[in-house]
Design a protein around this nucleic acid. Structure first.
Lengths: 191, 191
DNA sequence: GTCTATAGATTGATAGAC
DNA sequence: GTCTATCAATCTATAGAC
């Protein structure tokens, strides 16, 4: 049985979003042309405009689509142990070298979207909500007394900053230093 | 006495670099056209090509020019006190709301250059050296036993990540939480 | 719903006058 | 050393066929 028009439409949308994730991670928001995005999805620019109306429309949809993909992926093999040190270690490894789709380009995409959000009022709330969700997720996973937003804020901040330095110079950020930092934050925070 | 040709050339170079700093912070590397950069410096694109050869040439020059501007600015009113808590507080305030030229757009420029470095092999070493310099500067300022690179790595990482979240949602990162995090890292690190 | 074709604006870079 | 003028390439977006 052939695919219905609805299925075809849904598949096109999915392909365009996945292509946007990959191409933007590689070339940046401004460097990824509409034609390049469409071609990477095996479609043409016409399909993109029919689905999202504009390049910005696609970006907004991308923000919603990847809303908590990161949080989910990180939390995946995270609950597999109760040992606190192992949880932190797994957290850091998944962050600096993600096994999920998108691979290691995932962080570049996050930075692109962050910059896009800083300059685009329409997008800011979307990205802010994504970070808020990640904060509360991490806080409730690691804090003894339920959701501790402050702990999540600090752990996420440290990992982002460490990953940035790691990407420029892997030797500059050893796993030992990263874990020492995460442990220090976890130990010092009340809750 | 009129300006010599050398002085004129030097002034043009200075103006172009300052314009690049501002315009790129506002619109991004890819979003800042050669014409826009030149116009913001009260010159034309011809002057830009005569000075830097290409847009990438200007970017590389910008990386070198701002090499440790950040570190210098931060360390400025930093040695004004010996109280450890006040030093951390001053460090964080200067980072999240810089008084220096470029203002609060400074951080956006840093992220643009970081992304540019991640994608441009020629630029990566420049940006990596900039971070390395900042790490050692901070480490030697704050560590009891001389230059502690690990401490600098962690403090810078935390501040970058906190600033990112702060920019999306100022309420999400209070000064109290930021200082608690910095204090925790400083206390836990050996040295 | 998607494609082809194309319009209209903008891009990075070059050539020649001064 | 800088400006003006311009080229070829590329960009976002639209219109009409299917």
């Amino acid at each position: 049985m052939a695919k219905s028009q609805q299925e075809r439409r849904a598949e096109t949308r999915e392909r365009l979003l996945a292509a946007a994730r990959d191409v933007i991670a590689e070339r940046g928001v401004a460097g990824a042309s509409v034609d390049a995005l469409a071609e990477a999805a095996d479609r043409t620019s016409g399909a993109l405009y029919a689905q999202f109306g504009s390049k910005d429309g696609l970006l907004l949809a991308l923000l919603d689509h990847w809303k908590d993909a990161a949080a989910v992926a990180i939390a995946a093999d995270f609950s597999s142990t109760d040992e606190i040190d192992e949880r932190l270690s797994s957290l850091w490894r998944n962050f600096v070298d993600p096994p999920a789709e998108g691979g290691d380009a995932w962080v570049l995409l996050e930075h692109e979207l962050w910059l896009y959000a800083c300059r685009t009022p329409t997008a800011r709330a979307h990205v802010a909500a994504r970070y808020e969700s990640a904060r509360r997720g991490l806080g409730s996973e690691l804090s003894a007394s339920g959701a501790d937003s402050a702990l999540g804020t600090l752990l996420i901040a440290l990992m982002i900053g460490l990953e940035m330095q790691h990407r420029l110079d892997p030797d500059a950020v050893t796993d030992e230093v990263a874990l020492a930092g995460l442990r220090a934050l976890l130990a010092a925070l009340p809750g």
